[in-house]
Design a protein around this nucleic acid. Sequence first.
RNA 1: GGGCGGCUAGCUCAGUUGGUUAGAGCGCCAUCCUCACACGGUGGAAGUCACAGGUUCGAGUCCUGUGCCGCCCACCA
Length: 1025
Amino acid sequence: MATELAAHELPKQYDHSQAQSRWYPFWLERGYFHSEPDPDRQPYTIVIPPPNVTGALHLGHALNNSLQDILIRWRRMQGYNALWMPGTDHAGIATQAVVERRLLEEEKKTRHDLGRAALVERIWRWKDEYETRILSQLQQLGCSCDWQRTRFTLDPQCVRAVRHTFFGMFKSGLIYRGTRLVNWDTLLQTAVSDDEVTHETVAGHFWHLRYPVIDPKPGEPAFVSIATTRPETMLGDTAVAVHPDPEQALAAAERALGEKLASASEKERAGLERELQQLVERRRALLPHLIQLRDMALAGRKVRLPLVNREIPLVADVWAKPELGSGCVKITPAHDPNDYEVARRQQLPMINILNPDGTLNENAGPYAALRIAKARERVVADLEAQGLVESVEDREIELAHSDRSKTPIEPYLADQWFVKMEDLSQSAMDAVTDGRVKIVPGRYARGYLDWLSEKRDWPVSRQLWWGHRIPIWYAPTASEADLKRAFAGRADVVWRRDDENEGWLICAQEVDLSEDAIPGHKIEQEVDVLDTWFSSALWPHSTLGWPEQTPELQYYYPTSTLVTNRDIMTLWVARMVLTGLFNVGDVPFREVYIHPKILDGYGEGMSKSKGNGVDPLDVIESVGADSLRFSLAYLTTETQDVRMPVEFECPHCHAHIEQTKKNRVLPRIECKKCGQPFSTQWATRPEDLALARGAVVSERFELGRNFCNKLWNAARFAIMNLEGYSPGLVVPDELAIEDRWMLSRLTTVTTQCTAALEEYRFGDAARVLYDFAWNEFCSFYLEMAKPRLQDPASRANAQRILAGALDVLLRLLHPMIPFLTEEVWQRLGQLAPTRGIDELEPAAESIMIAPWPEADEARADEEIESRFARFQELLAGLREVRSRQNIPPRTPIRFSVRSVDATRDLLAPLTPYFDAMAGAHATAWGPQVAAPPAAASFVAAGAEVFVDLAGHIDLEAEVARKKKELERLASAIAGKQRQLANENFVSRAPAAVIEKERAALAELEQLRATTEAALAAAEGSPGAK
RNA sequence: GGGCGGCUAGCUCAGUUGGUUAGAGCGCCAUCCUCACACGGUGGAAGUCACAGGUUCGAGUCCUGUGCCGCCCACCA
């Protein structure tokens, strides 16, 4: 490798792909990523949020994993025994859905054509392919996961953990089976949990229907009016409800509104008053009618359900709110959650009108086999034909959609499995309230606690084939005696009576039961699988070997930090906490860090379906993993999501084309610059696919790219100047001013960066390093090192400090920029294998395992930093004069400085640097310095500086500028004077603040005096007109 | 309907416990291909800190209200 690393071969631009392909295998080979329990060291552990094996990683993953890697690398350097546990999630519904969709598109087959075993087999193949791809993406990102420990939520170890958990919960009575109304996905034909449902507002209708009263008595209405947004569900109606005490209910509603009005703001008042008015009106118009209907209900009267001609009762139930609609409500127990509750209270039959695939079943009579949308049309038409549609309104309705299949959700009655959440939820709430788990930022704790406090039972069964099959067996024909006999002496089998259905539920801990496990009876395993989150919930302990008390579990558990996205706080984080407590008896992690979300330029979340996603590999390819990681860290601030306008990059001319809502879904786009077309992720037609693909990029990564390139060149400079380096400590007396300044700054920066990482302030850490590296290390330190490196007398020491400082900077940057820092570290190691500032040490064989820099407070030197600030101020002033006067950079200028002796003593020694860095030569320093005849002057660092403009000047500009400057000073002085004249300010503000103001005023006045003098001089000088 | 976050330069964002001339990157203007870096150097222009009140000697920062944007939660026919 030595020849490869020769300094003269260093390219001007950082070659990220070379560094990446060189160092990742090196790290792997050295086993740096691997961790073993070691009682002598403290562990630092992160379990990865396992990505779904549905597809490739997106930018959100890149952010999530970059941050984890930053933490892991940093802690590893700090000396912790760092373990990053990697793996992937089988993602039940999501994965099965993509594979099924492919199956349908490519082979026109459904899962039923294939059968369970064959489908699952296919999904495994899919999983293998995508898992490989995902893990490779993580590696390209530079993630230092312990790959030897890679897990998958459906691998044998996780299966075992799931089985033990289910068994344990079943045995504790936490698991039950029941017929419940669930969110039914008719495409995937499975129940989904509330959390997998999203509500979208769509344009719909509100139908007012009439159900004829059977044998109306005189004075009774002929119809009962009801309203619905889903008319086809009337086929499953089993009652019409009216409030049992409409008078009281209306009165209560009025009272509530009145109270609200009393405490309402002016603005709300009008609306509320109107509302109240309507309510009063309503009571007048509707109440007698509702009372009549209530009486009819109590008398057991019935109405005729049109179309299916079913007689259904009028019932009195509080669910029917008299203040809404017609005051009556149709009851469809099998297809509406509220109606379901009503039916249970009123003991009404429940009629399911749907097949699992979303077509209507035989209960729908003539409408059987129709799809819902079609049935709706027909039902409405038929009702209209019979004059039973009173009116139709347009209305926006909230429609539930399945998050996975994007199809509308149907409430559907089905047998499902549940976990009782009462105690489990409480345990997870306690863990956060008592601080065993700390959530950062703290505001996210609220959502977590609110969600858990509802303690809603967790529906864990899914009607899928891909997942952990529920370890329950049914023995319909067996008696308890049979069970006792068959499983005598087996601690790994328990059974319980099914509370809601006939028969026994048998749960087996680890080994499947065979068909003939009970002699003389046939038993069958439950066909449903478990919710994906059931296995993900176990991730922190299942990956460490639970239920076995492995050394890993004992050593690494509880893990240190969980880094995740706020979207899955409840679904995943809360459940990890409660299963961890249930299974292991301790929380799964000490801290949860919630990072921002990546949004596009419109503030919308990125997703594949919207087409606004950025593929991290595109970014890595164009700017490198380091740039990506650094940019992401830089963007990770505490309160803001990351907004990222995205662009297409033309594959032909590399022009960037803004991505809009319009063009982001096009299969092909024509480059605005070169006119050539390119394809996008939406390309499906062969002629589109044949085009070169345009990457989706964002210019926000240029920050990282530019920074990496800057660092690279700084390193290149250092390396080119380390020829002949000889190790040695520099005694303090021999330290140059800039050395002492640099060491002082390094100390401060180390402190700041470390503190930022400790508090998960990644953006701050990145900013501190960026500003320091660019504006101090490069712009000043390296510039000032140049002359010293040329001079044989100072060269050796300059090299030593340069090598030592670069060494520290690289280590600080390594967690964010692993590849570049390693590349430089290795090259630096060749030229300066032994280096250091406080003591000489051989450099670590890899920066990955080098120690994290420690701040040496003794190096912090305020005096030198303030001296440096004055130098910088003076330098900036000189440069400004040059620029203002349009003096070409190469033309030397001369200046003199009038100041007190102290300032002179401080700055005069830096004279050579003004030459080198501003092309400005100091001709005189001190109190006696007089202004040259034609000069540009300014005040900096408490000194008056005169730039001799003889020869090349625009004095007029100088005069104009001075005048403007005086105006500014006048207004600033006036402001200060006003403030200091303010009685209140002087009497109430702290003395220090007043003192500061006085000093500032004095300084301004002084400045005005010198400026006026300079103006007079300029106006009186020969060049002025 | 409830909750959370945001609103600071053309764009994307920082802004410590309130302290008086509000910062950065990109973009823009001028200038320089000077021997680490044009993915660069130097200088510059650019802001009524969403709006309205309030607290305070002093508010981008604290309080109240309003508006707009985004997200999460919620069973309303």
